[in-house]
Design a protein around this nucleic acid. Structure first.
Lengths: 152, 152
DNA sequence: CTAAACCCTAGAGATAACTCTAGGGCAAGC
DNA sequence: GCTTGCCCTAGAGTTATCTCTAGGGTTTAG
């Protein structure tokens, strides 16, 4: 049993265009062609494609994914290189996760202010402060400093 | 006290080019100019720039960051819109974190195989299986199926 | 045997986010 | 007052990753 490019697109949620693009970039050297020149994906191909998606999902560049696939095509002998490549990538991903978590904590801090009942008051104070800093440095104040109009 | 673009670049690890690009994209409407037309960053500006970096770090598009900054420039009245924007973004980031964690788990699974003493044997079996699948479907076998040469 | 729905390639176009160049003004030290 | 090292803008160029178009072959159902 093999799959057409359309079926693979449906399974992977990559577009047909993207699959062909990946092939052009050398990411799919393992996908064979049938007698009409059509790509015929096997289940084993889908496994490897899934790995490619995991690498892409975690931010690996196509050039580096190609390097990994090249190692795979070299067979079991390349296990050391594959391992080194994935370990390096793993470190990068973990570092990236940490940075994202840090930034998310700051976003949550902002959200916390926005969610508080005194949000308007706090923001007004911050804006007044930022504006005063501009004036103290002989700079135009870019904030409109609209006072909170009361109802209507 | 204000900072030149060079000093800000050093502090934020954004390049001078990127800072000017962000300004061109409307991300820095709050940065004032001195009498010579030079950008003069205040500490308050650095705070906002830091928020911009958090949003970028978590994958927000420049267009959406501009929307957020536009809300900030509108003053305290825009608290509801800011909150909604950040909450939407928060959800996207958390979802993205989950996907990355999932992909990383799969990479770790691969790494685990590569690290085991029987790695070569396992990979050889996988490759033989994938090759057999090709042959069973009347397709050329793209794997070199080089046997593990023994030492030297 | 033909129309519809696939498949293919080559290559142009799109999008996002920078990155750099050209040409020119300002500021501080010798 | 002139060189050096900043600063500015406008706009061209780059990189990465798709996304689509044109032109053409294949397969299948009526």
């Amino acid at each position: 049993m093999t799959y057409t490019i359309k079926e693979v697109a449906a399974k992977t949620k990559l577009s047909i265009y993207t699959l062909r693009f990946y092939d052009k970039q050398g990411l799919l050297p393992f996908v064979a062609r049938n007698s009409s020149g059509y790509r015929a994906f096997t289940d084993g191909d889908l496994n490897l494609l899934h790995t490619i998606c995991c690498l892409k999902e975690t931010g690996m560049k196509i050039k580096d994914i190609r390097q990994y696939i090249d190692y795979v095509m070299l067979g079991p002998a390349s296990v050391v290189q594959r391992r080194e490549l994935l370990e390096n990538h793993r470190r990068a991903v973990v570092a990236q996760q940490a940075k994202i978590a840090e930034s998310l904590a700051e976003i949550d801090y902002k959200l916390n202010i926005y969610t508080t009942p005194e949000a308007q008051k706090i923001l007004a104070m911050e804006q007044a402060f930022a504006g005063a800093e501009k004036v103290a440095n002989h700079l135009p104040n870019p904030y409109l400093s609209v006072q909170s109009g009361h109802s209507e």
